[in-house]
Every structure is written in structure tokens, then in C-alpha cells.
Nucleic acid binder design. Structure first.
Length: 871
RNA sequence: GCGGAUGUGGCGGAACUGGUAGACGCGCUGGAUUUAGGUUCCAGUGCCGAAAGGCGUGGGGGUUCGAGUCCCUUCAUCCGCACCA
């Protein structure tokens, strides 16, 4: 039968328009149905939609369309993470205003996204650089400040010399700026901070209440927060050696049990005691200077020698007034962690051991593996870090390290140094406060004013927004707001005298820390409608890249806590379900002379012997390289347009979700895309053929025989696909749809001669198939649905319900094993009891043969699963 | 160093709580249809073997009637964090 090929280029825009005019995807806040909020991490408007974006949004769209069909009030919005450096770089390079560049990119990318046929509520779209958005962000900042969640402090910051801005710890990767790649320097600056550390414990505890987050992400956040329990010990200084005014050294340790193994103290170069000592000791000052210049990259740290310098200061051991220990300044002690001072126990820590060996310090073993002889147990080159039994530790001898910890804590907590206990228990976190000041133009201005008389004064809410000035120059690096002739000059809101605006703008991670809440009521003139935000949130399914496992997700979790404290919503956590999807990767190709070739520049030839690549332009063989994340440098990119122009959006959507599980990388191949398109055309032939042959066949109860098989296949697929989508197992759902299509191909080919029951079963089955396809290939599904005479659009139709009676078989085929090896099958009624199954199995020829007349020793019947005859 | 994964045909991958390993797709082989094809349809496709049969989920061992799945051990690859006291 001759069928027109399905033409996606005609059909897809038509259906997109139909969905649009019916406003099918616009969510209403007053809709009484249960809500479902599905969100993909919003894109940075770089200029082009990348194929990775497409995969991400398609996953969210499948969920959104499925949930909508299941009767939920679905919120599926889209916006733009639009502030940031690239806009300024473009301004510097191309003399284009960051605003124009950004909004131009947004327009281009929005058009690209629309081609994909995503079921997005575009009425809620915004960009974080919209004044409407950052205005409300400034309101939040002031509310946070009022609640004490914002502080201003001088601290050592990571300074990116290329971008001329401060970076958060999280933005320093291997000692380099996450964006510029420049080596980061340390500088002392006064900065704005969000007090995320106020929530350290809660941010940690609440991870256990996020069962729908990947384990990996929760562990990464746990490690990042880095909680440890230990003891803060105040070591008295030997007064004759101490700088004036210093009497003790505070040390944080998680191993107080090893205190009798201590042989030195080490403090950071920035430690106050080190500074004081250096003031009187030029050689020490020079040493500390050297530490500051030392690289902080991972490689530098790896190879950097552990170096120390004896300050001459001595501390007294807390348990022995006659035991003095030297205080070194050491290059491996961090001022930022704990107290910036440690005690070194060489026998229990490899780094301390190396240090002790280098400087000839004593090595006293204090923990020994169970069963060793304390008289002979020695530590020379390798520290013993495992559990064991205490030795050489006076009153701790014989204890487990855990008991020893408690004993030391107990004894020291009752001894006083001055008016404080010599030691107290302390919980320590690795997490630092979040520095949000950026010396950039294209960001949300921090709504603060500096007045010589009044100090730092918040901009009154009535005076918001603090708008970015339009007239700016990018002829020099640095912050253009600083150089603007007028913008920074403002009257002090308090005293009215001339004052200066804060010229720092906020880290763009602030923008993305609450956008999901703004989507719930983007029209509000306050940051949120607290009721709407609390109703819609948490996001039921959040989908994005693993690269945001720490930064964005942790900041958002903090923001929700801050917004709750300031009354903007009532919510524990922003994202109930989190899914981190894999990347789209592609083979790489190199020409004979070694330069990278684009996929469009090579032709792949395949035969029994394998695959070869040929450079089209030269006809010479090209080398097929490894799979890589698509990148400009390797030239292995495929653009969404290339695919949609050729095959249409449905094919692209289908291919990206088939085969590979969504959390893994998917390899883009031409063969795969072509295969997906073949399937699309096959479905169209099948459904349109069925529609023509069946006309208005009235569905009637499926009968037995072939019609029953068709019905059962359809209902089984219906059940399975729904369950797979719920689990985000898109590849499995797609395999199910293929299976159903394979089952239907035969019967529908012969449909002209079929009986009415078969016709009815096929009619129902193709209708089910259409609904199953709809989340994945929504345009094709609409076309099929219309061809079948569907009244409404699929996008506004409910998900069909499967018939429970049709998803179980009455006859089942059990594998029959003899001695654990499969020898054949047994077809029997599903509800046959164990005895029947056993008798029938023993009657089977191949079982008889295998038994050779012997009685079986045992017959194992697992109902509805397997029979195993043990001979 | 610490933490986390992953390992199944030529390839991507299925296999729910221990129960027919390889669903589904790609590729490949053979055949049919078509003016032709990069179309469509049919059949085949884990490995060895003519067959009977045997062997098969990174390697080795174990538990079990039965192991891809559980336990021990080992190897390989990938990812994250990392001078954190």
C-alpha cells in the first residue's frame, strides 16, 4: 500500500502552532489538580543551543508531557542565566553592549528551542539580567542582610588576574580560575559574604532526606561541607620563648588520642603567632614570604616539599609540664581550616612522619596493630594510620583509640588555662562562607552605599532597583562601574551627604540560586508569592549536569533556607528529585596530515571488515579517534539544526533518548539518527495504513487468539512504558515501544482480511502506540492521532489506562532445568499449582531422557518462574 | 592518598526482589521487492562445533538446586575531592 512519507518539516511547525494557540502548556497557579514541577537547569545564553542542551530539555519534556497526560498540573518553565563574563568579553572584543549581545543570543536560542517542540510554559520566561528579576534579587539581598545572613569581611580571596575579579573557592579548579584558566592569586579584600556556614549542619543533615538525589551528589556535598568532630586543645606557651602578649596556641585535632605521639607543632604562615615571630626574625619572615609565593595548584601541591621553619617558640605538653615541643611554621598548614595550627604526630600520619624525619624530630609509636609486641613495634618510613591499641601513652596504654579520645577530652576539659578549659569538643566544617562580590559590570548590583559618616548603608527598598548604567566603556580591563563618571556618586540614604555606591556586583550563582522559585510567580513585584512558591515547590524533577553537583545545588539549598527565614517561601529543600544526565559525545576524526576534521568533512565506510573514515575533500583515509565531549577544539560537534533540518525534531528527540541510559553519555552517530528516522517513518506507515484500513472501527472487547495477543502486547507496553518514564528509564521505554511496533506490524499488514475482533484490537493498539509515542515524538503522535480520527490533540488527552487483566498471561512458558541447566520449556496454565507443574515437568521427554529412569532427588518449582529437576 | 562508580556479543545496551543471559537498537550476512538506490519487506547474527553438544557477563575462588545479580579476592577503566590536622 502506497503511503506518503511523513514530512516533519511541514508537520512539526503546524503542531507547534496548534499547541501554542491552545495555550496547552501554560500552567495556572489556581489549577486544582495535583501539581508537578519539572525543571531543567536553565541555559547560559552563549549564542547557540548545544546538542547537550537538547538532550537535557528533551528528558524534561518527556516527563512533563507524560505527567500532564497523567492528570497533573505541570509547571515546565524556561529562562536564561544571563549575567556573566562572556557578555563583557564580547563587549571588549566586538564593541557590542553586553545587554544587546545577551538579548540577541536569547532570541536566537529561544527560536532554536522552539523548533524542538518542547512543552514549555513560555509565558513565564525571564532572564536574570531583566531589571524585573535583579530588582527582586536586590530585595532578597536586603532581607538576607537584615536577617544577618549577609556579612562583610576582610579575607584572603582568590583573585583571578585575567578576569580581574574575585572567585569563590568553588570556582577555583586546580588553582586556576574556572572561566579564565588563569593562575589564581591570593589577595586581602573586603568582600560581601552570604553566611552559608550558619547552615552547615542543616545542609549536611538534610541530605539524608533527599532520597531522590543521586548518591554521588549527596556524597560530594557531604565531603564539601566536610564535618569533623575533634578537640580544640590550648597548648600553653613556654613563656621564655613566647612573643609578647601570647600565652597559648590553639590547635584543632581529630586525633587527641595520639597526643603522646606529638613531637612538634606546625602553624600556617598567616597565623598571628607566626606573624609576631616573623616581626623579630627576618629569616622566618623570608620563609613565610616563600610560602605565599608557592603555587596552589594541585600539581604544585603534589610535588611541593614539606618545609618548616623553627620559630624558636616552645609549647608545653598538656599532660607533662616538663615536656616542651617546638613550634614550626610549615608550608602545608592552612590558615583557613581549623585554627591554622596542628600538632604533629609522626607515627600516625605520613606527612608528619616525613616532616619529622626531615627535621630530626622524635617518632613515638602510639597506636599499634592488635597483637604486636609494644617492645619491638617501630615506625620508621611508614606511618601506622589504622585502628589498633594505644602504647607509649601513659594512662591511655591498652585502650582503643576511640576510648583514648574520650579519656583525653574528659581529662583536659576539667583543667583550666586562664579562665577557659584546656580543651573542648569542637565540630569543624570545611565549608566556608560564600563570597559573592564580583568586580564586574554585567551582574546584579549589590544594593549598598558607603558613607564616610554612616559606614555601610543599605539602599532603602523604595529606592530599588539599583539599575546598571547603560553608558559604559570596556576599553580597559577591570570593573567599568568603578570608572563610571556619575553612577557611583549617590547621596547617603541615612545622612544625605555625598556617598559612594557599592560597585561590586553579585556572583552569577546568586542569580541561579532562586530562579526556580521566581518561576512560580514571575509577575510578582516582590521576589515571590510565598503561597505560590510553597505550593509549587519543591521542584519534583530537576534535571541537569553533574558539573553543578556542588556549586549551584548547594547554593540553592542555602537560598531556600534564607528565603524561608525571610518569609519568601515555606520549604525545606528546593529539589525533591534530582537527575544528572550524561553528555552527548561524538567520535573525533583526524586527517592524514593530523588536523581535526568535522563529522561533515568525513565519509564513513562500513563493511564486514569494520569502519573506515575517508576525508571527503581529498579522498584520503582519515583516522577515527576516541569518543569525546563535543568541543570546538576537536571539531567533533553536531548542531541541533543539522539534525532538525534533515530529520526533524522528533527524530532528534527519539535518538537522543534511545540506546544509552540517560545518566550515561550518548554517542551521536549518523547511523543511529538515520535508524531513529527509519522508525519514525515506519510508525507513520503502520498507523496511517491502519487508519485507512480500519476507518471508524468501533473498539470492542478483545477476543481470544490473535486479537488477544495484540491486546495483551499493547496493554503490557502501556504499563511498562509508564513505569519506565516514571523511573526516567527512557531507553527502556523506547525499547518497549519498538517491541510493540514489531508485534503490530504483522497483524496490521494483514488487517484487510482480519475478523472484527482483530480489527478492534488493532484499532485500540495503534491508538495506545500513539499515546506511548507522544512524550518522545510529540509531533508525529499528533499526526497519527489526527489520522486515527482523534478528537482532541494527544497533548490534551489523558494517558490511557491499561487493563490489568490483559497484562498477565493465562498460559505461561516456564523454563525447565535439569541440574541447573536449561533443557527445554513447559507451557502450562498460569494458575497451575506446584504439584501439577512438577508432574507436567517430569512427564516431559527431555526430562525423562535426562533422568534415564532414575527418580529425581529433588524438584524445585518456583511459581511462575522456573522448574529445576535435580537428578 | 580519600571517596564514588563502571566492566555483559562487532557496538550502544536489556535482564524487577538470585530463576530462560544478550530484550531493543546499530552494524553485519543472505534473500525478495523496486527503474535505481542510502527505500521497504523476510530470514539469520554471543563464541567453538558438521552435529550432538560444550563454553560464555574483566580474572580467580566461594555460597546455592540455580549466580551477571550474593560473599571473598584480584585486575582494568572512568569520575569527583585532595597538604582538611
Amino acid at each position: 500500500m502506497a503511503t506518503e512519507r511523513y514530512n516533519p518539516r511541514a508537520a512539526e511547525p503546524r503542531w507547534q502552532k496548534a499547541w501554542d494557540s491552545a495555550k496547552l502548556f501554560e500552567a495556572r497557579n489556581d489549577d486544582p489538580r495535583p501539581k508537578y514541577y519539572v525543571l531543567e537547569m536553565f541555559p547560559y545564553p552563549s549564542g547557540r543551543i548545544h546538542i547537550g542542551h537538547t538532550r537535557n530539555y528533551t528528558m524534561g519534556d518527556v516527563v512533563a508531557r507524560y505527567k500532564r497526560a497523567k492528570g497533573f498540573n505541570v509547571l515546565h518553565p524556561m529562562g536564561w542565566d544571563a549575567f556573566g563574563m562572556p557578555a563583557e568579553n564580547a563587549a571588549m572584543q566586538n564593541k557590542v553592549h553586553p545587554r544587546d549581545w545577551t538579548y540577541g543570543n536569547i532570541a536566537a536560542m529561544r527560536a532554536q528551542l522552539k523548533v524542538m517542540g518542547l512543552s514549555i510554559d513560555w509565558s513565564r520566561e525571564f532572564a536574570t539580567c531583566d531589571v524585573d528579576y535583579y530588582h527582586r534579587q536586590q530585595m532578597l539581598f536586603l532581607d538576607f542582610a537584615e536577617k544577618g545572613l549577609v556579612t562583610r569581611k576582610t579575607s584572603k580571596v582568590n583573585w583571578d588576574p585575567e578576569d580581574m575579579t574575585v572567585l569563590a573557592n568553588e570556582q577555583v579548579i586546580d588553582g586556576r580560575g574556572w572561566r579564565s584558566g588563569a593562575l589564581v592569586e591570593q589577595r586581602e579584600l573586603t568582600q560581601w559574604f552570604f553566611r552559608i556556614t550558619d547552615f552547615s549542619q542543616d545542609l549536611l543533615d538534610a541530605l539524608d532526606r533527599l532520597p531522590e538525589w543521586p548518591e554521588k551528589v549527596r556524597i560530594m556535598q557531604q565531603n564539601w561541607i566536610g564535618r569533623s568532630e575533634g578537640l580544640l586543645i590550648r597548648w600553653p606557651l613556654e613563656q621564655s620563648t613566647a612573643p609578647a602578649g601570647e600565652s597559648e596556641l590553639e590547635v584543632y585535632t581529630t586525633r587527641p588520642d595520639t597526643i603522646f605521639g606529638a613531637s612538634f607543632m606546625a602553624i600556617a604562615g598567616d597565623h598571628p603567632l607566626a606573624r609576631k615571630a616573623a616581626a623579630e626574625n627576618p629569616a622566618l619572615a623570608a620563609f613565610i614570604d616563600g610560602i605565599r609565593r608557592q603555587g596552589t595548584s594541585a600539581a604544585a601541591l603534589e610535588t611541593a616539599e614539606k618545609k618548616g621553619f623553627d620559630t624558636g617558640i616552645r609549647v608545653v605538653h598538656p599532660f607533662d609540664p616538663h615536656w616542651a615541643l617546638p613550634v614550626y611554621v610549615a608550608n602545608f598548614v592552612l590558615m583557613e581550616y581549623g585554627t591554622g595550627a596542628i600538632f604533629g604526630c609522626p607515627s600516625g600520619d605520613q606527612r608528619d612522619l616525613d616532616f619529622a624525619n626531615k627535621y630530626g624530630l622524635p617518632v613515638i609509636p602510639v597506636v599499634m596493630p592488635e597483637g604486636e609486641d609494644p617492645a619491638t613495634f617501630q615506625i620508621t618510613e611508614e606511618a601506622y594510620v589504622d585502628d589498633g591499641v594505644m602504647i607509649n601513652s601513659r594512662f591511655l596504654d591498652g585502650m582503643q583509640p576511640k576510648q583514648a579520645f574520650e579519656e583525653v577530652a574528659r581529662r583536659l576539659s576539667v583543667v583550666a588555662v586562664g579562665n577557659r578549659p584546656m580543651a573542648e569538643r569542637k565540630v569543624n566544617f570545611r565549608l566556608r562562607d560564600w563570597g559573592v562580590s564580583r568586580q564586574r559590570y554585567w551582574g546584579c548590583p549589590i544594593p549598598m552605599v558607603h558613607c564616610d559618616a554612616c559606614g555601610v548603608v543599605p539602599v532603602p527598598k523604595a529606592d530599588l532597583p539599583v539599575k546598571l548604567p547603560d553608558d559604559i566603556d570596556f576599553d580597559r580591563p577591570g570593573n567599568p562601574l568603578d570608572r563610571h563618571p556619575t553612577w557611583r556618586h549617590v547621596a547617603c540614604p541615612k545622612c544625605g551627604k555625598p556617598a559612594r555606591r557599592e560597585t561590586d556586583t553579585m556572583d552569577t550563582f546568586v542569580d541561579s540560586s532562586w530562579y526556580f522559585a521566581r518561576f512560580t510567580a514571575p509577575w510578582e513585584d516582590r521576589p515571590t508569592d510565598p503561597a505560590a512558591a510553597s505550593d509549587w515547590l519543591p521542584v519534583d524533577q530537576y534535571i541537569g549536569g553533574i558539573e553543578h553537583a556542588i556549586l549551584h545545588l548547594l547554593y540553592s539549598r542555602f537560598f531556600v533556607r534564607g528565603m524561608r527565614a525571610t518569609g519568601h517561601l515555606d520549604l525545606d529543600e528546593p529539589f525533591r528529585g534530582l537527575f544528572t544526565q550524561g553528555m552527548v559525545v561524538h567520535e573525533t576524526y583526524r586527517s592524514a596530515d593530523g588536523h581535526w576534521l568535522q563529522p561533515t568533512e568525513v565519509r564513513i565506510e562500513t563493511d564486514g571488515a569494520g569502519r573506515r573514515a575517508v576525508e571527503i575533500a581529498t579522498g584520503r583515509p582519515a583516522e577515527i579517534g576516541t569518543l569525546e565531549k563535543m568541543s570546538k577544539s576537536k571539531r567533533n560537534t553536531v548542531s541541533p539544526e543539522e539534525i532538525t533540518d534533515g530529520y526533524g525534531a522528533d527524530t532528534a528527540r527519539w535518538f537522543m533518548l534511545s540506546d544509552s541510559p540517560p545518566e550515561r553519555d550518548v554517542e551521536w552517530t549518523d547511523e543511529g539518527a538515520a535508524g531513529a528516522h527509519r522508525f519514525l517513518q515506519r510508525v507513520w506507515r503502520l498507523v496511517s495504513g491502519a487508519a485507512r484500513a480500519l476507518g471508524e472501527t468501533v473498539p470492542q472487547p478483545a477476543a481470544s487468539g490473535g486479537a488477544g495477543a495484540v491486546s495483551r502486547a499493547a496493554h503490557k507496553a502501556l504499563k511498562a512504558v509508564g513505569e519506565d518514564i516514571e523511573k526516567l528509564a527512557f531507553n527502556r521505554a523506547i525499547a518497549r515501544i519498538y517491541e510493540l511496533t514489531n508485534v503490530l506490524t504483522g497483524p496490521i499488514g494483514d488487517i484487510e482480511d482480519a475478523d472484527p475482533a482483530m480489527k478492534a484490537a488493532c484499532r485500540e493498539a495503534v491508538s495506545i502506540l500513539t499515546h506511548l509515542l507522544a512524550p518522545f515524538m510529540p509531533h508525529l503522535a499528533e499526526e497519527c492521532h489526527a489520522t486515527l480520527g482523534g478528537r482532541r490533540m494527544v497533548a490534551e488527552s489523558p494517558w490511557p489506562q491499561y487493563d490489568p487483566a490483559l497484562v498477565v498471561d493465562t498460559q505461561i512458558t516456564l523454563p525447565v532445568q535439569v541440574n541447573g541447566k536449561k533443557r527445554g520449556d513447559l507451557t502450562i496454565a498460569r494458575d497451575a499449582d506446584q504439584g501439577e507443574v512438577e508432574r507436567a515437568a517430569l512427564d516431559l521427554d527431555f526430562v525423562q531422557k535426562a533422568l534415564e529412569g532414575r527418580k529425581p532427588r529433588k524438584v524445585i518449582v518456583v511459581p511462575q518462574r522456573i522448574v529445576n529437576v535435580v537428578a
